[in-house]
Simulated scan of single mutants.
Amino acid sequence: MPGQPEISFVIPVYNKADILPHSLAALAAQRLEVAAEYIFVDDASQDGSADILQAGAGALPMATILRNDSNAGPSRRLNQGVAQARGRCLCLIDADELIAPDAAMTMLRLMQQHQADMVHGKVKHSDQAATDLQPPAIGAAPAFAVSDRPLATILNGRGFVRMAWLVETTLFRAAGGCDERLFIQDEALPLRLALKARRLIDLQASVTWAPRAASHLSADKRQQHHDRFFAYYNLLHDAEALVPQDRRRIATICASIIWKAARRSGLQINGVAALAVYLAGKSGLDIPPRHLDHAAAAFRGMPGIRRSLD
C-alpha cells in the first residue's frame, strides 16, 4: 500500500464532462515534491463525467473516484471526499477550473513557512476556452498577506468564497467540515474554517483559472442569497465565542443579504424596512435578532431552493 500522502486533492464533480479532461491534465502537470492523492466525488452527474474520471484517473497516482446515485450538492460531497482523505493537508478546488502547475507546492510552502493552517489563493477568469487555456506558474515570489485573525479577515475581505484552498485536514474536521444544511459551501466553508483557524494566508496569486463558459451553481441568485444568508445566520447561532465586533459584523452582513434578496430574489419581506435595518447596522447600531429570525423564516419558505439535507 502506498505511503501516506502529504496532500489530498478533494474535488466534487457534477456535469463537467466538457472540461474534465483539461482539469485532469492540469492536475497531472502539478510540480509536486510530496506525495499526493486525488479524491473525486461525482454527484450523480448525467453527462458521463464519472466515466471520464474513470478513464483519466490513470494519469494520477492514488486516485479515488466516489460515485453517487443521488445529487446532494457540493457541501455534502466535499465532506464525503474528506472522510476518505489520508493527507495532512487538503487541496480543495472546483472541477471546472484548471490549477496552476506550482499551485499546491506554493501554498504548502507558505503554510509551512508561516505556521498557518489555511491558505487561500485567487481564481482567475479567462476569456479562453479550456482547450486553449494553459495556466501559467505562480512563480517564486508571489504577494501574500498573513492574518492572525482569520475570521475578521474573512468577514472584512473579498474573494474568499471561491474554491482555491489548502487547509490542514485537522482544521477542516475541527470546523465540522461543510455545513450540510446548505447545498452550496462557497460562503459557509471559509467562515467555519476561519472560526477555528490559528493563521490564514491570503495568497494574491492565481491558483486556478476558470475558462470561458464554465458554469457555477452559485450563478442562481435566489440560491446564492439563501445560502449566503444561512452561512452567516447559522454562524451566529452555532458559534458561542464570537467577539462582539465579529458578531455585529456578521449580523450586518445578514441584513445586507436580506435587503438584496428582497429586491432581487423575491424574498417575502418588507424591502424598505430591510434597507433601514441594514443602514442602521452600517452606522454601528445593533441589528435586532428578531429581524434576522423573521428573514430566516422567509428564506425557509422560498420555493425551489436546493438544500443538501432535502
Rank of each mutant, 00 (worst) to 15 (best):
A55E: 13
A205D: 09
I257G: 01
I287L: 00
K196F: 11
I184K: 01
F9S: 06
Q84W: 07
P5C: 10
V277K: 03
I19Q: 04
E168G: 15
F299H: 02
S126K: 03
P136T: 02
G176K: 05
H225M: 13
A35H: 01
A194W: 01
L191Y: 04
A280E: 09
S8G: 04
D42C: 01
D96H: 07
H22W: 09
R290M: 12
A297T: 05
Q80T: 11
H114A: 05
Q223L: 13
P142I: 11
T153W: 07
A152T: 14
Y14R: 04
H114M: 03
I154C: 13
M163C: 07
I93W: 07
E180R: 14
V123D: 01
R76N: 10
A129M: 04
T169H: 15
Y278V: 00
I93T: 10
D69N: 05
A59D: 03
A63W: 00
A72F: 05
G281T: 01
A141P: 04
V10G: 05
L90S: 01
P303S: 12
N234V: 12
D18E: 15
V123E: 04
L267K: 08
E33Y: 07
V207D: 00
I184Y: 06
A239G: 05
R86H: 12
R290L: 13
L20G: 02
L171I: 06
W165H: 15
A174Y: 00
L285G: 02
P74A: 06
M105E: 14
F40M: 02
H291G: 10
A28D: 06
A262C: 13
W209F: 13
T106D: 14
Y278W: 08
V41Q: 02
A137R: 15
Q113W: 07
H22K: 11
Q185E: 14
L235H: 09
L155H: 09
A280N: 08
P142Q: 12
R173G: 04
A95N: 08
E97L: 07
A129N: 09
G176A: 10
H237T: 06
R158A: 15
T64V: 11
E168P: 03
A276N: 05
L285A: 09
L66R: 02
Y278C: 03
A241Q: 14
F160R: 03
C178W: 12
T170R: 14
M163W: 04
S23E: 09
V13M: 04
P303L: 11
V123L: 15
D42I: 02
A296T: 05
